[in-house]
Amino acid sequence: MPAETTPHDATWMAWPSGSYTLGETAAEAEAARRTWADVANAVAEWEPVHLLVPPSERAEARRLLGAGVTCHEVPLDDAWYRDIGPTFVVDTDDAGERRLGAVNWTFNGWGQQSWATWEHDAVASLVATEASGAVRIDSAMVNEGGGIHTDGAGTFLVTESVQLDPGRNPGWTRAQVQAELAHTVGARELVWLERGLTRDHERYGTRGHVDIVATFADRGVLLVHDQRDPAHPDHAITRDVAATLAEARDADGKPLDVLALPAPAVLRDEEGWVDYSYVNHYVCNGAVIACSFADPHDAEARDVLADAYPGRHVVQIDARPLFARGGGIHCITQQQPCLSADVPEGSR
């Protein structure tokens, strides 16, 4: 699995289609649609975007999406394509030809959550797999794209609360997870975190996705959610995460450089402790599509991201409508890596 920072041929997304993603009022539905569209249109400035849209939302999607977005009409349960889409990988055959693969994880509604349905989402990964022409790789492991991060050289971040979740993979051991990730995405070293952020472990959370906790900005360089306020329960959690990562080694046995990315200053919303996270950004060709929260720490986060990804434009989008529904910008995007070493022609 290449690093997210390598060149992409495209980005894949899914459109909000019902239940909690559209909310209970027309205003809530419009906020959701506009936020998903804002992300898709921002990415489309830098690379092609493919977006799964349920037939009932065809007109709304076309009203808000720009010309750089290609729609694929399919039924959906939800809109988090990072999780329900495939994880793309690249292989080189004996003749030196590079081939694209697509790992189709088993998806069961983030561990059979009582509020989730996944009849359509369980097969939604096949849309990108088939349209991209990738070799299909099926995995028996229940996993989601938001549950892993890689440096592109075999080092992966995972959490015990996701891959070893009894609702996902009952009875599985670390060794079994290691073997499956080695087989499917080329993992050589797993860095295990105990859990994710507080809000993400509540009823409507994922039970600990790593992509709001830490990410690789480069080989050996990690950006880590830093909750500085002791009043928030994530203060203790992120201190434990930072300590674990300070002792970790990558697949080549080298230590990791851990850089703090501040949590927003806001601590609570009307539902409780927030899990707003600047870590949940998406790196595309030439840009970083980043979360903002109308928060005093937005500017500092932007500066940290600009330093971490030199040469890329940082584009901030208000992600509060996404987090109110259970995720962020990274959660709704999935990269399709480029088979060549160069950014595809036409990318900005």
Results as ranks from 00 to 15, higher is better:
Ile212Trp: 00
His201Met: 08
Ala265Cys: 02
Leu190Arg: 12
Ile237Met: 01
Arg268Lys: 15
Asp269Ala: 06
Ala265Ile: 04
Thr159Arg: 13
Asp165Cys: 07
Asp229Glu: 09
Leu222Val: 02
Asp211Thr: 04
Thr150Trp: 02
Ala182His: 13
Val191Asp: 03
Thr244Leu: 06
Ala260Trp: 00
Val162Leu: 13
His225Thr: 07
Trp172Ala: 15
Asp252His: 14
Arg268Trp: 02
Asp218Ser: 12
Leu193Glu: 01
Glu189His: 14
Gly171Cys: 07
His232Gly: 03
Met141Phe: 04
Glu202Ala: 09
His183Val: 00
Ser125Gln: 06
Leu193Gln: 02
Arg228Met: 06
Pro170Asp: 08
Asp138Val: 14
Val224Ala: 10
Asn143Tyr: 03
Ala182Pro: 00
Pro230Tyr: 11
Asp234Gly: 07
Gly253Arg: 09
Val258Trp: 07
Glu247Thr: 15
Gly154Gln: 09
Ala246Phe: 01
Gly167Thr: 10
Val213Trp: 03
Glu247Trp: 01
Val258Ala: 02
Asp240Leu: 11
Asp234His: 04
Asp138Trp: 01
Asn169Arg: 12
Arg168Gln: 06
Thr244Asn: 04
Asp226Ser: 13
Asp226Thr: 08
Val142Lys: 06
Leu245Trp: 06
Trp172Phe: 14
Pro166Lys: 14
Glu247Cys: 11
Leu190Gln: 03
Val258Ile: 04
Ala134Gln: 08
Ala214His: 00
His232Asn: 04
Pro262Trp: 10
Thr244Val: 14
His149Ser: 12
Leu222Thr: 00
Thr238Pro: 00
His149Gln: 15
Gly205Ser: 07
Asn143Asp: 06
Pro262Val: 08
Glu180Thr: 08
Glu180Pro: 12
Ala263Cys: 06
Leu193Arg: 05
Ile137Trp: 12
Thr215Lys: 15
Ser161Thr: 15
His149Met: 12
Met141Ile: 15
Asp218Ile: 00
Ala134Trp: 10
Ala248Ser: 13
Gly205Arg: 12
Ala246Trp: 02
Ser125Tyr: 14
Leu222Ser: 02
His209Cys: 10
Val241Ala: 01
Leu181Gln: 04
Arg168Phe: 07
Ser139Gln: 09
Leu259His: 15
Asp240His: 13
Arg219Ile: 07
Pro255Asn: 11
Leu193Ala: 04
Ala131Asn: 05
Thr159Lys: 13
Ile212Phe: 00
Asp257Ile: 00
His225Ala: 12
Ala243Ile: 09
Gly196Asp: 05
Gly186Tyr: 09
Val191Pro: 02
Phe156Tyr: 08
His225Leu: 11
